[in-house]
């Protein structure tokens, strides 16, 4: 029960323990705690910032989508207009082509009529000539009466 030299021994032990704690135990543990606190605070701040950025991005996305919609509707309108134009154009071309074809056909018909007429004239002349030959016999000189025959055949045209 009495106070004795144990006191001194205990004080030395105590001093050593406090010194050791102060030097090697408290600082690293406390620093790691502080560091973790800072990290968590930073993380929370970053998360908040991210949230804000998300909101901003959403707003931006809505704007972009709206713009895109406007553009696409514009494009559709333009395309429809263009399509109408093309249809009109093709109608025009088709009509022109048809007219041209009709004209060409008419020209050919005309030409064929002329040819047929020419052929017929020739044949009629020959027929007339052979009829006259038969009527007159061999008296008519072909070379002599060539003028008359061509006059007659011209009258037929």
């Amino acid at each position: 029960m009495s106070i004795n030299a144990t006191l001194i021994g205990q004080m030395i032990t105590f001093a050593l323990l406090v010194w050791f704690t102060m030097k090697y135990i408290w600082p690293p543990l406390f620093d790691s705690l502080e560091e973790r606190k800072k990290k968590i605070a930073d993380g929370l701040a970053a998360a908040e910032k991210g949230q804000e950025q998300i909101i901003l991005a959403e707003k931006k996305a809505i704007g972009v989508i709206k713009e895109a919609k406007e553009q696409s509707s514009e494009i559709v309108t333009l395309a429809q207009k263009r399509a109408n134009e093309i249809v009109e154009e093709s109608k025009d071309t088709a009509k022109k082509e048809g007219d041209r074809l009709i004209l060409a056909a008419k020209a050919q018909i005309e030409q064929e009529i002329q040819q047929a007429k020419e052929g017929l004239r020739q044949q009629v002349a020959e027929l007339a000539l052979s009829a006259a030959e038969q009527i007159l016999g061999a008296e008519i000189d072909k070379a002599k009466h060539q003028d008359i025959i061509s006059k007659v055949s011209n009258q037929l045209g």
Binding site: I3, T6, L7, I8, Q10, M11, F14, A15, V18
Partner: peptide, 15 residues
């Protein structure tokens, strides 16, 4: 139990 020894408790409190 060191704390049932007055020397231990006094060593600490005197420090």
């Amino acid at each position: 139990v060191p704390s049932t020894d007055l020397n231990a408790t006094f060593a600490m409190s005197i420090s």
